[in-house]
Simulated scan of single mutants.
Amino acid sequence: MADVIGELLASLRLEGAVHSHWRVGAPWAVRGPAAGGTVLHYLVEGSCWVTLADEVELPAAAVHLRSSLLQRGDLAIFPWGAPHTIADRPGREALPLAAARSGARSETSGVVRLPGGPGPETEMLCGDLLCNAVGRSALYRALPPMIVLDRNAVRREPLLFHTLAALAAKHHGGPGERRLISLRGFETALVLALRLALHGEAAKRLADGYPALRALVHPGIGRALTAVAGRYHEPWTVDLLAREARMSRSAFTAAFRELVGESPGRHLTARRMREAARLLRETDLALSVIPATVGYRSSVGFHLAFRKWWGVPPGEYRDSIPSPHGQAVHPVP
Rank of each mutant, 00 (worst) to 15 (best):
R151G: 04
G6K: 05
G301H: 05
P175N: 02
H267P: 12
A138L: 09
T108R: 15
P324Y: 06
H303I: 06
R136M: 13
G209S: 15
R278V: 07
I147M: 06
D74K: 01
H330Y: 10
P324N: 03
P331H: 07
L70C: 01
P331K: 03
L160W: 04
R223V: 00
N132H: 15
W28N: 06
T253G: 11
R151P: 04
A292K: 01
D128L: 11
E123V: 14
V30D: 11
T122Q: 09
V4M: 10
A212Q: 12
S323W: 04
H218D: 07
L216K: 01
G176A: 15
G119P: 02
T283A: 09
G119T: 07
G295W: 02
A94V: 07
A207C: 04
A242W: 02
S248M: 02
L287C: 09
N132F: 14
A60I: 04
A94I: 06
G173W: 11
H162R: 13
E177S: 08
A166C: 09
A328L: 14
L139A: 12
A2H: 11
P158C: 11
G209H: 08
V30M: 05
P331V: 08
G230P: 02
H218S: 02
G37N: 02
A53N: 05
A99I: 07
R141S: 08
H21K: 08
D88R: 13
D54R: 10
S263Y: 09
C131Q: 04
R92P: 00
A189R: 05
D128H: 14
A229K: 02
A193N: 12
K308H: 15
P96M: 02
L160H: 14
A62N: 03
E55Y: 12
E121L: 07
P144L: 08
L183Q: 10
G119V: 04
R205Q: 15
A29K: 12
L130R: 10
P333Y: 10
L149A: 13
P314W: 04
S182W: 00
T283Y: 08
F256Q: 08
E7K: 10
P33T: 11
C48M: 10
G25I: 12
Q327M: 11
V154I: 10
E316Q: 11
R105S: 14
A35Y: 07
W80P: 01
E45T: 08
H330G: 00
L196W: 05
I290C: 01
P115G: 12
A251Q: 12
R72K: 13
W22Q: 06
Y42V: 00
D74M: 05
S299C: 09
R113A: 14
G37T: 02
V39S: 01
G220W: 00
P175R: 12
E282W: 05
R205G: 08
H303F: 04
H84P: 03
F252S: 03
S109W: 11
L194W: 07
R272V: 01
P291F: 09
V56A: 03
C126L: 14
V238F: 09
D150G: 09
S298R: 09
L75Q: 02
L183T: 06
A138Y: 15
P27Y: 08
G301F: 05
P90H: 11
S137N: 15
G81K: 03
V111Q: 07
E15F: 13
S248A: 01
T108F: 13
L125Y: 12
R266G: 03
G261Y: 14
C48K: 03
H19E: 15
A142N: 15
A292T: 07
M273N: 01
L225N: 03
